[in-house]
């Protein structure tokens, strides 16, 4: 059976990708297929990759503080392209207030530093929308 596929991307100018790489590797160890697209991705790049790779989850890593902008844009494009069955999650330095706003906007989960891989993995397995 096909594995759950996760796109891990870093939008915008933020070049700190060690965390994203560690996460990609750890999610592989949890049995997921992780498509790692790296730094400096535009929202358009991310959506294109998500469509071509037919992923179940988009995970954005943002440490730059520009999370409100990037998530809003990715959500817009997800709607435009009919990616309703794809989960959008994020990780990085996101203040509590912003986290609430992002969840209201339609982001499915934000994981702050210190979150265990198990927690992320369980969240994905329990919330993934496509029936495998």
């Amino acid at each position: 059976m096909r594995k759950i596929r996760i796109l891990i991307a870093k939008p915008g100018l933020d070049g700190h990708d060690r965390g994203a790489k560690v996460l990609a590797r750890s999610l592989m160890d949890e049995g997921f297929e992780v498509i790692y697209t790296g730094i400096h991705q535009t929202a358009e790049d991310i959506i294109r990759s998500a469509i071509e790779e037919d992923v179940d989850v988009i995970g954005l890593s943002i440490l730059s503080g520009a999370h409100m902008y990037h998530f809003r844009r990715v959500l817009e494009l997800m709607k435009e392209n009919g990616l309703d069955d794809v989960l959008l999650i994020g990780g990085g330095i996101v203040p509590e207030d912003d986290k609430k706003k992002l969840i209201e906007m339609g982001v499915n989960a934000i994981f702050n530093p210190g979150t265990s891989i198990k927690e992320i993995s369980e969240f994905i397995k329990n919330n993934v929308r496509r029936i495998k």
């Binding site: 990609a24 592989m28 949890e30 992780v34 400096h40 991705q41």
Partner: peptide
Amino acid sequence: SGGAVLGDRIRMKELNRFDNVFIR
């Protein structure tokens, strides 16, 4: 684990500008 890290796309970013290219 049966999982994988698929990282070939990362080298092909410059192809994102073309509508006539498909990468999987």
